[in-house]
Simulated scan of single mutants.
Amino acid sequence: MRQKKAKGRVYHYWARTTPWTRLPDPYSDPDGFMRAMARLQRMGALEDERHRTGTFGGLVADYRRSKHFRETLSNSTRESYDRYLTRLLVAYAAAPLREMTPEDIQRRVLDANEDTPGAADMMLTILRTLYAYARKRHRGLSDWTEGLEYFGNQTEREPWPDDMLQAALTSDNELFRRAVTLALYTGQRPGDVCAMTWGMVAGDMIRVRQQKTKTALEIPMHDNLKAMIDELPRSEEHLFLLSNRRGGPLTREVFLVWCQKFTRKLGMNRTPHGLRKNAAIELFEAGCTSAEVAAITGHKSLAMLEHYGKRRSQPKIARLGMGKWKAKTKGEREN
């Protein structure tokens, strides 16, 4: 309720309607005032329920309160979802769920964001997640993402070219060089790399619990990684392997910016996540099986892992395979 003073009198208004609804004076007509308040409150409750259950804004509010959003998603994924949900609410907050169509999403989400295909693809993924959540709670909803296609432009997450990777591994920026080394030789996501502490190091192993999947891993250290870790400063002020001068952790946001700045100077745009693909490719090219690669990177889906490995070098794999064949033939002759 709001009050306004005009011409020496005080007027009372219900402020949840547009325009505000004037109320009877509570002093001269208390019964009328209470009846009007009760009626408006009932109307407001019905409107809230209609909004909560029947619009995109209400669906998003429900989803943000869900266990899936609050507990199943990792912190980084939840933050990313939150950011894109806010963008989608600008376009669809008051949209009735039953009136949302693929054609409208194509125009207002995909076409409107074609200059940033990565963002458009992420919003389409979130819209599909929301539909899967909504159809279990709203009978008869049509799939508002049916037939829509991803741009599929994921160049930022592509593996780093060999020359660019070597330049990063020998960079004069000490902390950047260490971050790239740790990300490459553990094959972990940027958030997990930045969260690694000295307590996770045990001999020649690094123990990791992935933030996204909660998978626990024990990763043997590559000689290059072991040499780098042996040189890291260690004190009571440096809890994290990648700590700044004040002892705080390197954040994944800063790591992202560093990688983008470094790679753009070399004519490309790459992110820390691409180093995870580099790790998978190196392991495949070394002759590892999918199961062996997954034991290091923590991938649950072998199909996704094979997707990562599509960029492995055919000549290297062929040379490795021929070497095994030659060894087999030599063994047979000796026997």
Rank of each mutant, 00 (worst) to 15 (best):
M200G: 15
N269P: 05
T289C: 11
K67W: 07
L266M: 11
R2T: 10
A112E: 12
T213N: 04
A227C: 04
T329Y: 02
P26K: 05
G267I: 07
D163A: 11
S301K: 10
V60E: 00
G191N: 14
R245V: 15
P96S: 07
T86N: 02
F69V: 11
G287A: 07
N335Y: 04
E292W: 04
W144C: 05
R78D: 00
A183C: 09
L266T: 03
N173I: 11
F151D: 08
L130M: 11
A119D: 08
R157W: 07
R39K: 15
R333K: 14
M322E: 09
G321Q: 06
T116A: 13
N278H: 09
G8L: 02
T72H: 12
L165P: 09
I281Y: 00
T17P: 05
D111E: 14
R245P: 10
S76H: 13
L266R: 12
E79F: 00
G58P: 01
K226T: 02
Y84V: 06
E236T: 11
H51C: 00
T170Y: 11
V60W: 05
A195D: 06
G331N: 13
G323L: 00
T145E: 14
W325V: 07
G57V: 08
S313N: 12
H12E: 00
R209N: 08
R35M: 05
L239M: 11
R107F: 13
T53H: 11
R264S: 14
V208T: 08
I296Y: 09
K330P: 02
